[in-house]
């Protein structure tokens, strides 16, 4: 008897491990940002992780291993299983019609199928994640990984790239959580796997 699930277990496992990694990376990243802000604001320390720079860096450089290894497992699984075929093609016309449909709350939800807006958001956040990791590595090792640092226009610019990649990911998380709150039935399958009709 074959049981077809909406979300296979490698996807669920890497998703929730990524939640932990992301919370720690973003929370500690905000505290690191505060030590030398790029813009005219700082993050309130009530929502940062590690209450001072040394602890925040320790958390950031500890959680980066979870983020990267979990991300690699997810990418390898995604390519090997053909999961990413579900994310393409992305047609602009479909993105627009699904987007306006979602705004009017008239978007039907098909189990196991991504609509065009979802496809665009998921591909976008994957690219933002890769950008965050690469720009982060070039800030961490601007001498040893000089080629990477040069790619981002040097250490100074790489910090801005890293910041905007984080902003992109935060924006995605906001939309992602809002959508889950609006269509709560999509949450249990991300834990149990769910069942395709």
């Amino acid at each position: 008897m074959s049981r077809r699930v909406i979300h296979p277990w490698p996807l669920r496992l890497t998703h929730w491990l990524n939640v932990i990694a992301m919370v720690v990376m973003i929370g500690s990243g905000w505290q690191i940002y505060n030590a030398s802000p790029l813009f005219g604001f700082t993050f309130p320390t009530t929502i940062t992780i590690g209450q001072w720079l040394g602890a925040a860096i320790a958390w950031h450089l500890a959680a980066m291993w979870l983020l990267v290894f979990n991300g690699l497992v997810y990418l390898i699984w995604g390519f090997a299983s053909g999961h990413y075929k579900k994310l393409f093609p992305i047609r602009p016309r479909e993105v627009w019609s699904d987007f306006t449909g979602a705004l009017r709350l008239h978007l039907k939800h098909e189990k196991g199928v991504y609509n065009a807006v979802q496809k665009l958001l998921y591909v976008g956040v994957l690219l933002a994640g890769i950008l965050a990791v690469l720009s982060g590595l070039s800030i961490w090792k601007p001498v040893q990984l000089w080629f990477l640092c040069d790619l981002f226009g040097g250490y100074f610019t790489a910090r801005y790239v890293h910041f905007f990649a984080m902003m992109g990911i935060c924006l995605f998380i906001l939309v992602h959580l809002l959508l889950v709150a609006l269509v709560p039935k999509v949450l249990p399958p991300m834990i149990t796997g769910g069942r395709l009709p």
């Binding site: 992780i49 590690g50 001072w52 602890a55 906001l174 959580l177 809002l178």
Partner: peptide, 18 residues
């Protein structure tokens, strides 16, 4: 919706600060 937003706000980890 509120619950989702609370989920999104990372809670500080008390004591994890050397």
């Amino acid at each position: 919706l509120l619950r989702a937003m609370a989920l999104g706000a990372a809670t500080p980890l008390g004591g994890c600060d050397y």
